[in-house]
Nucleic acid binder design. Structure first.
Lengths: 172, 172
DNA sequence: AGCAATTATGTGCGCTGCGCACATAACGTC
DNA sequence: GACGTTATGTGCGCAGCGCACATAATTGCT
């Protein structure tokens, strides 16, 4: 019965998402895609407004206002893009780096609480199943970026769905 | 490394939650706790505003407005509570029943797509792991209700976290 | 070089979902 | 029958987001 499995995964999925959002509210004091923006900008490749927009799946004005919030909170700064004076380049402030670290750490801790009852062997089992689910997806590049928008790259080794914006990190 | 497992679960959890919310937007045309309200009211025990508020974890005014939306859309009706004339009793209209069915079906379908690459044996494995995670939780009754707020009771057999509001269904 | 089409950013405006403070009606208790 | 409690409903405002529009810089075409 795949339906029973799906139902349980639905409960756990929502539980995990709730825990992550709660962490975001506690640490970043913002909801929606704002914490994801913090994570993505934190990769340090200095994305433009439009690049960020595509990764987060937001409208253009929504992204502008999102960045406004982060700038107002001294978490992000807009730098001029020297190669294209229309564009801006988004970078984290030291406070932003700190907030990003705290959020990612809180995120992992919140999720770890859910898996805590599992034994080490069961964790390995679960890892295998999750990897299989993720690697079997056939999303476009943009969708992959969207999925990875909250991912903690420090612990994401051998990622089953490498988002292509990671490539920009190297070139930054 | 529990952290790598946690990170992957974070990605899948958000993916599942996103898929469920997308279904809600498509079918119910509302976001937030509105689809959950439809599911909970659909149990048919005629919850009061306050009962619903506690299950969904919303403020009282937020719940009133939520019900306003559902009433405006002809999905829910407020009936007088004969035993307590302060209270109201929330029930789905035929349209509401239909919307609830469509949402729950869409939810299962969306999640099933994520599990689809797994074999039958792997599904069983996953079910066991999910059940262990859920049954090991130590939430209060209210938290349990909150977790089950989107659950499809038609396929939830031998629930690891039985929400106590289910008991009201029998007495309704 | 010059001018149109494209691209990137920012602004007014409104919508949805939600919480706080407050008001009102019914219940229970003494 | 008066008072505290409980249940519902109402202004009001805020966060997050999208649409339509405006403006500036780049690209491409001739």
């Amino acid at each position: 019965m795949i339906e029973r499995t799906a139902n349980l995964l639905g409960v756990v999925g929502v539980m995990v998402a709730d825990a992550i959002e709660q962490t975001a509210r506690d640490v970043v004091r913002h909801a929606g895609e704002t914490p994801a923006a913090l994570v993505v900008i934190g990769y340090g490749f200095g994305p433009s407004n439009d690049r960020l927009r595509r990764i987060l799946g937001l409208s253009h004005p929504g992204t502008v206002r999102l960045v406004d919030r982060l700038v107002r909170d001294n978490l992000v700064e807009r730098r001029p893009d020297l190669k294209d004076r229309r564009s801006i380049s988004l970078h984290l402030t030291p406070q932003g780096e700190q907030a990003r670290e705290a959020f990612l750490k809180g995120r992992l801790a919140a999720i770890a609480q859910v898996i805590e009852p599992l034994s080490t062997a069961e964790c390995e089992q679960l890892t295998g199943l999750l990897r299989k689910m993720l690697s079997s997806l056939d999303p476009s590049d943009e969708q992959r970026c969207y999925l990875c928008r909250l991912c903690d790259d420090r612990v994401c080794t051998n990622c089953p769905i490498p988002a292509d914006f990671r490539a920009d990190v190297a070139s930054a």
